[in-house]
Design a protein around this nucleic acid. Structure first.
Lengths: 154, 154
DNA sequence: CACAACTGAGTTGCGTGCAATCTAGCTGGC
DNA sequence: GCCAGCTAGATTGCACGCAACTCAGTTGTG
């Protein structure tokens, strides 16, 4: 845990938090994939739909704030969701720069089928509900710690 | 908050394990980025180097097994590492299909500078060592649970 | 030995993530 | 009213991930 130039600070892959999170995140995406294929959604698209089911009629920026994503990622993603008829983008606000994202009836209806997506995880992951809850809370704490600012290593 | 179909299992974004892990993983990548920029590595490239510092002279398949990545991801990544002079790929084994990945002296030397990369996380994340350890263990348990097989939702 | 089945890497296509840049629209100072 | 500066999205370029496929090389069977 300490590192000068002499001591080697445990570079082993398996001991790295970064790798554990990286692999766990992709592992969960794999677990969701079959269910999401049924809905015709990718994993990030599913997360966007989750956010919109919670509250739509928001701008791209607000959506990105909730998902920690920027317009460079969301713009093309939302275009695809629009092409599939799940959302619409309106640009007629008082503020002509804003684009409002709204669910279509189709997009809203998809919500009823989304419950089964979560059940998919339960059958595939060997962690108890308690452990999953703890993992979720820890991960959430990690996300909210010290938002993107300058890096270290001055 | 509840739809028909009886019990609605809480579709709120913030309660989802999938989102927590997804966001946490990207958050950690952001924390590492400044330090990795100094080394001229991307985050996945850094993980590959970690694996190779642990043991090199391995085939692409073995490397992928350790990292849970397939050749479709590793082949181009390794090509870039080779272009930067950090690894070499040899194809003269007894088994002519195998490609052995070996660290160059440069790639090996980079290891001495990699210690500082981990210190970068410590200053940016508001989790104690205990919590980080717990998170790592949980995430690792999740990764190793029920490897990629068929999906759910029969 | 001949040949089908298998295997290890590589390639292709598509959808992210994200930095950097661009563009259109708004806003404040004069 | 005018223009510099700001802001919200969109676009561009590059590097993943991963499914699907190709290709070269090996192995098992007769």
């Amino acid at each position: 845990m300490c590192n000068l130039y002499g001591v080697q600070p445990d570079l082993a892959l398996d001991h790295q938090l970064c790798f554990a999170l990286y692999a766990a995140s992709r592992r969960v995406q794999q677990a969701y994939r079959p269910a999401l294929d049924d809905l015709g959604l990718t994993y990030p698209q599913y997360l966007v739909m989750l956010a919109l089911w919670e509250r739509d009629g928001v701008g791209v920026g607000e959506l990105g704030e909730r998902l920690h994503l920027d317009s460079g990622t969301l713009s093309p993603l939302l275009r695809r969701l629009e092409q599939r008829g799940l959302v619409t983008r309106r640009r007629d606000d008082p503020d002509g720069r804003r684009v409002e994202i709204l669910l279509t009836p189709q997009g809203d209806a998809l919500r009823d089928r989304a419950g089964q997506v979560q059940d998919c995880l339960a059958g595939q992951v060997d962690l108890g509900p308690e452990q999953l809850g703890a993992l979720r809370d820890l991960a959430r704490a990690l996300v909210n710690s010290t938002p993107r600012s300058d890096g270290g290593t001055p």
